[in-house]
Measured scan of single mutants.
Amino acid sequence: MKATFQVPSITCNHCVDKIEKFVGEIEGVSFIDVSVEKKSVVVEFDAPATQDLIKEALLDAGQEVV
Rank of each mutant, 00 (worst) to 15 (best):
E56N: 14
V16W: 07
D46E: 11
A47V: 09
E27P: 12
T4I: 12
L53T: 08
I54T: 01
S9P: 03
E56R: 14
I19H: 02
K38V: 06
T11I: 11
V43M: 01
V65C: 15
I26S: 00
M1I: 09
D52S: 11
F45R: 00
C12M: 08
V66S: 09
K38H: 14
F5T: 03
I10R: 00
S40W: 12
K18Y: 06
V34F: 05
L58T: 01
H14W: 10
Q63G: 05
E64D: 09
V43T: 00
S30K: 15
G24I: 06
I54S: 01
E64A: 08
E37Q: 11
S9N: 09
P48E: 01
D46L: 10
A49P: 00
M1W: 11
K38E: 10
N13L: 12
N13A: 12
A49E: 02
E37T: 11
I26N: 01
V65P: 07
E20I: 15
Q6M: 11
F31W: 13
V29W: 02
S40A: 08
T4A: 06
T50Y: 03
V36D: 03
E44H: 15
P48W: 03
Q6H: 14
L58R: 00
K39N: 07
A3G: 05
G24F: 10
E64G: 05
C12R: 07
V43I: 06
V66G: 06
K39T: 06
H14G: 11
D52M: 12
K18S: 07
E25F: 07
E25W: 08
P8T: 09
P8L: 09
V34G: 03
T11Y: 15
V66D: 07
D60T: 10
V43R: 00
I54C: 04
I54F: 02
V36W: 08
D52Y: 13
G28N: 02
G28C: 04
E64C: 15
I26M: 05
A61G: 04
T50V: 02
V42I: 11
K39S: 07
I10F: 05
V36C: 15
M1Y: 13
P48S: 01
K2T: 11
K2N: 07
E64W: 13
K38T: 12
L59W: 09
I10D: 03
L59N: 08
H14P: 04
K21W: 08
S30H: 13
E44R: 12
E44L: 14
K39M: 08
D33L: 13
S40K: 11
F5A: 03
P48Y: 01
E37G: 06
C15N: 08
N13E: 11
Q51M: 15
E44K: 12
G28K: 02
D33I: 11
S30D: 04
E56W: 10
I54H: 00
V36S: 04
E27D: 10
Q63H: 15
F31G: 07
V16E: 03
E56C: 10
C15L: 07
F5I: 04
I19Q: 00
F22K: 08
I26C: 02
Q51W: 15
N13F: 11
I54W: 02
D52T: 08
